[in-house]
């Protein structure tokens, strides 16, 4: 019961999905429901599987609640912030469920707080990319040096500054000409090799699970 049924479930759903994706007539197979609506059988099953994981939608809230109630109870460091988190968590979830996604207050908070926090966090990258480049691009080794020179040429090729220094119309097409060559030849070759390798590696990782050599997802006892 504890191990056998899950293994059977895995194999059954693996086969169902794989066959649907491979076999044409199966993929195009339509079923008609008693009320007359027609649906692709594949769509029907995938909707049901998605539905299954959506039912678990409160798991995240549950984990956050458990951790932060613990923080407050044991008065761990920064515990007042945990109160702040819990108030917002429940307040906003209840607001959302009552008001709906298009609700006035719900939307106001989304646009006023979530959107700016989200896009500002993303924009931290403008700074972090500078500090990462500063630390990494040293002539420590041939590799680091090469990466540095390439990044330099690409940067110059991408900006009007680079064009002003060594213009596109001059010898070798300027920074832009070299940049284009780097993008089209070594870069394309490198990424293609990485992609093909990743496919083989990832596929074998999946095969290991399919053959039952990797069963961590089922737990041990």
């Amino acid at each position: 019961m504890r191990r056998e049924i899950p293994i059977i479930l895995t194999i059954v759903f693996l086969l169902v999905r794989a066959l649907f994706e491979l076999i044409g007539p199966l993929y195009d197979f339509q079923i008609t429901f008693p009320d007359g609506t027609k649906e692709n059988l594949f769509t029907t099953i995938s909707n049901a599987v998605v539905f299954m994981s959506v039912v678990a939608l409160f798991m995240g809230m549950w984990n956050l609640t458990r951790n932060h109630v613990g923080n407050i109870r044991r008065k761990r460091e920064n515990w007042p912030y945990s109160i702040w988190l819990l108030v917002l968590l429940y307040g906003y979830a209840i607001l959302g469920i009552i008001e709906g996604m298009e609700g006035k207050h719900f939307d106001w908070i989304y646009n006023g707080v979530i959107v700016p926090l989200d896009s500002t966090t993303l924009s931290l990258l403008a700074f972090f990319i500078a500090s990462a480049a500063y630390r990494a691009f040293r002539v420590r080794s041939l590799e680091a040096g090469l990466m540095m020179v390439v990044a330099f040429i690409i940067m110059m090729g991408n900006t009007s500054l680079g064009n002003a220094i060594w213009s596109q119309t001059s010898w070798l097409g300027g920074f832009k000409g070299i940049r284009d060559w780097l993008m089209n030849v070594p870069n394309a070759a490198g990424f293609r090799a990485i992609n093909l390798g990743l496919f083989i590696g990832g596929y074998v990782a999946a095969v290991r699970v399919a053959l039952g050599l990797e069963r961590r997802y089922l737990g041990q006892d």
Binding site: A126, I129, A130, A133, Y134, R135, F137, R138, V139, M148, F152, M155, M156, N158, T159, S160, L161, G162
Partner: peptide, 18 residues
């Protein structure tokens, strides 16, 4: 123009670091 200056600063940083 801002892009150019941003890139320039990163290049300067790389040179300084080296």
């Amino acid at each position: 123009d801002a892009q150019s200056l941003g890139h320039l600063w990163i290049i300067v940083l790389i040179v300084l670091g080296n």
